[in-house]
Simulated assay, not measured.
Amino acid sequence: MDFTTRCIHGAANNTHTTGAVSVPIYQSATFAHPGIGQSSGYDYSRLQNPTREHLEKIIANLEEGVDAIAFSTGMAAITALMELFSIGDHIIASEDLYGGTVRLFDNINKKNGLLFDYLDTSDLSKLRGLIRKETKAIYIETPTNPMMQVTDIQAVAALAKEYNLLVIVDNTFLTPYFQRPLTLGADIVIHSGTKYLSGHNDTLAGFLVTGRTDLSEKLRYIYKTTGACLSPFDSWLLIRGIKTLAIRMERQEENAKKVAAFLNSHEKVKKVYFIGLETHPGYEISKKQASGFGSMISIEVDTEATAKQVLERVNLILFAESLGGTETLMTYPMVQTHADVPIEDRLARGINDRLLRMSVGLENTEDLIEDLKQALS
């Protein structure tokens, strides 16, 4: 079945008999038992809810995994994931991660005894050099947020297999429409469902997806114990959003290519980070492991004053955090998404006061370019 069709019909709807085309919202915290020792299959919504279960089956199907677990936020998903590890365990992570992930690792997980090293995970020789007996996992974003570094998932998975390490991939930027890390050897995939999967900037969600039954069992136990489950209504919003995932991703990528080309030719834009540009160092790897480039663009402008001017002058484009929705958003990473990353680390990674990040939406491309032209003038 084609991916587009699976977005709409990817999980058989066996949760009701009314014939409703839209999956019902089972807004119930608890479910009655038919008798002692008997269950309808649903007992308490922290464990499972019919609406959420339907969503999880769709996501597992799209990522080609055996299980997907829906959380209240992307950070809740990553927080639960870290409970797989014990005091003294070592994790190697991409150096250019979403700032909230770095904040969790450095301020919560380190306090609880986990050890982290950060590096450009596209450099396999350096990655191998950091592996030690305490190492348990390699955690990557590809492309990264906000510098758009690309890591060869298949190569990292082959390296990890030598040392019996987990490979964890945050696939938020490309979604399973463009990239399916489990098929490339990853063990666990992460999504901020708030972003492209939802697609409408109207709800928060997170997912962990795995192709391994042993990991599914461990994660399900952590999930029911820690309790950050996605609500029935938010699950329904995600189901609705995913129905248009394929067509949104195609249009947003098409828009992003045109916007990136315009920005790449503007005198005040000194660098464009978009993996769809042939000059991007990760372009060939992206073509190998993904079927598209997505719609995330970061740019470095000539001065801090220009960066602030753009943020204050854009009209159609919204100066707001988040990404992946129908509206085009622009973010200032150094004071928003990465504000809690130490300044020396931010600057070393290129996250300076001239860097802007764009999530290109579904608007008419010429309208977006006109807005950027006047904001940069």
Rank of each mutant, 00 (worst) to 15 (best):
C7M: 06
A12G: 09
T15F: 13
T15I: 14
H16V: 05
S22K: 15
Y26R: 09
Q27T: 10
H33I: 07
G35I: 01
Q38M: 13
Q38H: 10
Q48E: 14
H54W: 01
L55F: 09
I59A: 11
A60F: 09
L62R: 08
E64M: 08
D67N: 10
I69N: 07
A70M: 06
S72L: 11
A77Y: 02
I78E: 07
L81T: 03
E83L: 12
L84M: 10
S86H: 15
D89C: 09
I92F: 05
S94N: 10
L97W: 01
V102D: 01
R103C: 03
F105C: 13
I108E: 15
L114H: 09
F116A: 12
S122N: 11
D123I: 09
S125V: 12
S125P: 00
L127E: 07
L127A: 06
L130C: 12
L130W: 05
L130F: 12
I131P: 01
R132C: 08
K133P: 01
A137L: 02
I140K: 03
E141V: 02
E141A: 12
N145L: 06
P146E: 09
I153E: 03
Q154P: 02
V156L: 14
L159V: 14
E162H: 14
N164F: 08
N164I: 06
I168V: 07
F173H: 09
F178Y: 10
R180P: 13
R180V: 15
T183N: 14
L184D: 01
A186G: 08
I190K: 00
H191M: 03
S192T: 11
K195T: 12
Y196D: 02
G199L: 04
L204C: 07
F207R: 01
F207W: 13
S216K: 11
L219A: 00
I222R: 09
Y223I: 04
Y223V: 11
Y223N: 06
T226N: 05
A228G: 03
D234Q: 14
W236C: 02
R240M: 04
K243I: 03
A246T: 10
A246Y: 01
R248S: 11
R251T: 13
E253S: 06
E254N: 15
A256D: 07
K257E: 10
K258P: 02
V259R: 00
A260H: 00
A261K: 08
S265M: 04
V269H: 03
K270G: 07
K271R: 15
G276N: 07
I285D: 02
K288G: 05
A290W: 02
F293G: 00
G294T: 08
I297A: 05
I299Y: 10
D302E: 12
T303N: 05
A307S: 12
A307R: 11
Q309T: 14
N315A: 08
L316T: 14
I317G: 02
L318E: 09
L318V: 14
E321A: 15
T326S: 14
E327W: 02
T331Q: 07
P333Q: 08
V335M: 06
Q336I: 03
H338V: 01
V341W: 01
P342D: 07
E344S: 15
R349N: 13
L355F: 08
L356C: 05
M358D: 04
M358A: 12
M358C: 10
E363G: 02
N364S: 11
T365Q: 01
I369W: 13
L372N: 04
L372R: 11
K373L: 04
A375W: 10
A375V: 12
